[in-house]
Nucleic acid binder design. Structure first.
Lengths: 249, 249
DNA sequence: TATAGTTGTCTATATCAATAGACAAATCTG
DNA sequence: CAGATTTGTCTATTGATATAGACAACTATA
């Protein structure tokens, strides 16, 4: 047994079904590296014993992961790991989507899903240093790497200062490039608050997740080098595909 | 409706029961501040309609939260919010347990649960810059603030250099103070990797959580100012009680 | 080519999760 | 006090979850 892999049992009558808990464990074991890519999982009977459940329950977990494209089951041979480990997404003073994932993926970009102008809510106004109710431009975006959805975010900008930033985003596919059109050559991450929760219906659809998945949530403010807030954002990352690596810049 | 509170619906046949999903939503709404302390929740029928479920399902969610000490239900009057918002736990180059929570709580300390000497696993050895299998001291600790469990961690130290650090921890209740006894006046956080998952059986017991809860997981390395690794740790935070605030120091 | 080991399928049963409806009990308001 | 609002309790029914056992289908290997 590698590391301090705890032989933790499973919780009953928890509101989370046993098959989902086991699927979570398997996903995590893969992400941690307990199972190499293309390696065979232990046979169903062994897993059932290890988790203290019926073989059929293990089968439910596995079939969910097969559906999800993480595993491949072959009758008579075994069940094999397909999926890669989690992407490691760096967060620090200079967080950039594409720069951060360099080397880990061959292709990545941001897709603009929608944009709208709305009055600033309390927290958006605070984050951007505007009056509550002031016009803000809201961009809904999805980050993709190698065809997998790795993030889903809402960003808010001062609608007056950054009028037309939605078009810039659609054209460039990059926040950094879009801000450059408004004379912002550099920006820093001022603050990041991190939490986690179950994915809601919107997350499931946008990030192509299975129900019951967990998302990491960051709420952040980007500022110019001299401290003026320019972007307030809430991003959601699928915990099964992404981990956040904090660099203290 | 405050902010962009999405009226997101609930996922069926997800492996996560509806009542648990709704309990999660309510917890989150409280943590975000949608419901003030002592405020009344909307009546059960209203919640049922809002989430598109039966009233009994909402009642299951509420009774779980009552059990958990987050809500208080009073017949004829309504259901009220007891719990505080989430603690905001700072993470940066100088992360210290007690220093970080200053101002948010009146009382906090670290409890040493157990200690042992074991051979270093792969990742511990890498983190501490030791040979795999070298003796390391492992400390299991729980962080408490105002009587609530807010973290659960395993820490590893070079057993030769820090022989007896377990006793120091037991006496001082502080990592910083214990390290000082070994001539470490200052240390920095070199790296932090962040992920999230469902709480396992050990987490549930240690952090006094209800089954189905989510934990934030950080894996970190602390180093001396000149870069020598001294501590490798894996910490788990209950997502419903704690958020992590990243400071780019 | 046997045989052991593995995944796939079927039937049956018990428990949990969710819906539905009705009414009691407590509280608040006019 | 009367009526409206809200939580608490009960019964009944349906579907999802989990267990149990048996056997078929396929694969690898001695």
């Amino acid at each position: 047994m590698i590391g301090q892999q705890v032989a933790d049992s499973i919780e009953r009558r928890s509101g989370v079904s046993l098959w989902r808990q086991i699927a979570d464990r398997i996903l995590q074991a893969i992400a941690i590296g307990d199972f190499a890519e293309n390696a065979a999982l232990p046979p169903e009977v062994a897993l059932a014993e290890r988790y203290g459940v019926n073989r059929h329950t293990v089968r439910s977990a596995i079939s969910a992961l097969v559906q999800e494209g993480v595993l491949r089951a072959e009758q008579g041979r075994g069940t094999f790991v397909l999926s890669r480990k989690r992407l490691s997404y760096p967060i620090g003073a200079r967080t950039r989507f594409s720069a951060g994932l360099q080397g880990q993926t061959s292709e990545r970009h941001i897709v603009l899903l929608s944009s709208s102008i709305e009055p600033a809510s309390q927290r958006v106004a605070e984050g951007l240093g505007l009056a509550r109710g002031a016009d803000v431009m809201r961009l809904e975006t999805r980050g993709e790497a190698d065809g997998r959805s790795v993030s889903r975010a809402a960003s808010w900008f001062d609608a007056r200062r950054f009028a037309g930033i939605d078009e810039a985003m659609a054209q460039t596919g990059s926040i950094t490039a879009s801000l450059a059109r408004f004379g912002i050559d550099d920006y820093l991450r001022q603050s990041t608050v991190l939490s986690a929760r179950h994915a809601d219906a919107a997350d499931l659809a946008d990030l192509d997740l299975q129900p019951g998945a967990i998302v990491l949530v960051t709420v952040a403010v980007n500022v110019t080098p001299n401290g003026q807030p320019i972007q307030f954002s809430e991003s959601r990352f699928p915990a099964e595909r992404v981990e956040l690596k904090l660099s203290a810049l």
